[in-house]
Nucleic acid binder design. Structure first.
Lengths: 149, 149
DNA sequence: GTTTTTTTGCTTCAGAATAACAAGACATTA
DNA sequence: TAATGTCTTGTTATTCTGAAGCAAAAAAAC
C-alpha cells in the first residue's frame, strides 16, 4: 500500500465527513505513514519541524486529535505512541502486537476476541465504548534471530 | 476483604520473596487499598505527604515499582493510573473494565479471552510476554442511573 | 463582503516519569 | 560487635507527555 494511495483515501474520507485535510494534518499523516512502528508525539514534532519550523507540541497534538477522530490512527497506550491504521474506512477496535526487540507493531482485528470481550463485559452489565488491547513480546522474526544465537 | 487482611497477605508474600515491606511501601499500599478505582501517581503523592511530608515523585514511583514487581498492583495504561489487585497470590494477566462516569474499575481474569489472545498472537508467530486489556464505557450502576433520567 | 466557524500560532502550565548521586538503614559475616 | 556490602530513601534536576487559553489568520457560510 503506497503512501500516496493512503493519502488519497484519507482525503476522500475527510471530504465525505466534511472535515478539512489541511497541510499540517497531511504532513503529520505522511510522517506516520513513513514509520514502520509506533512513533511518539515529540519525535513526530521533531520531524515535522523540518518543513514546519514553527511547529509546537500543540501543533502535533491537534493534528493527532484530528487524525484520531477520523479514525486514521490508533494510540498505543502502553508506550504513548501513535500508529497509522491502514484500514480506516470504518472505525474498528484493534489488537496490537508490539515487539519489544525491533519495535514493530502488528495490528489485528479479531472478531472472536472482540466478541469474547464484549460478552465478558456484558455479563457484568458493562457497556464497552472503546477499548485498548495490546500485547508486548517478541515477533516472529526476532524470535527466529534469537534462536540462531 | 478488609485492608488489614490485604496488608497481612502482602507482608507474607514479601517475606516469602525476601522483599522488604517498608513503612513507605506499606503506606502507599494502604492508600491504594483505600481507593475504589485507579489513582494517579501524583494524587497518591499528595495523599502520602499527609504522613510523609518529605515525599517526592521518586518516592511514589519507587514504591509503585516495588508493588508492581510483587504483583500487588496493576497499571491502567489508558489513564496512567494504578490499581490495587486483590488476588496477588500469583501474577496473572487481567482485563479491566473502566467506567468513565463513576471511575469504578472492575478487574476480570477470563481464561477464554486470555487463551484467544495468546492463540491469535501465536498464529502470527508472536510470543506474548505481557499484555494490556482495558475497556472504557459504562458500568451497570451508571447505566441504570442513566436509564432513570 | 461581512459574519461565523475552524484552524493555527503562541505561551504557559500541569501531569507523568526517570536519572543521578548522596545519605541512611539494614543484613551479613568475620 | 565492627566492618562490609546491599538495599532503601532523600534530594535535585530534568525530560517527556499532554492540555488550557487566548489571539491571529484562514476558510466557509450567509
Amino acid at each position: 500500500m503506497s503512501i500516496e494511495s493512503l493519502v488519497t483515501r484519507a482525503r476522500h474520507i475527510c471530504d465525505v465527513n466534511g472535515a478539512r485535510f489541511t497541510t499540517i494534518r497531511e504532513k503529520v499523516f505522511r510522517l506516520l505513514a513513513d514509520t514502520h512502528g509506533g512513533i511518539g508525539a515529540y519525535e513526530l514534532l521533531e520531524q515535522l519541524k523540518a518543513s514546519e519550523p514553527a511547529a509546537k507540541p500543540a501543533t502535533i497534538y491537534r493534528a493527532l486529535d484530528f487524525l484520531t477522530e477520523q479514525g486514521f490512527i490508533h494510540k498505543i497506550e502502553s508506550t504513548n505512541a501513535f500508529l497509522l491504521c491502514h484500514h480506516f474506512e470504518q472505525h474498528h477496535p484493534a489488537q496490537l502486537l508490539i515487539c519489544d526487540q525491533c519495535g514493530h507493531v502488528e495490528e489485528l482485528h479479531s472478531s472472536p476476541l472482540q466478541q469474547e470481550f464484549v460478552k465478558l463485559a456484558s455479563e457484568k452489565g458493562f457497556l464497552i465504548q472503546r477499548q485498548t488491547v495490546e500485547a508486548h513480546g517478541s515477533c516472529q522474526s526476532c524470535l527466529k534471530k534469537a534462536s540462531n544465537d
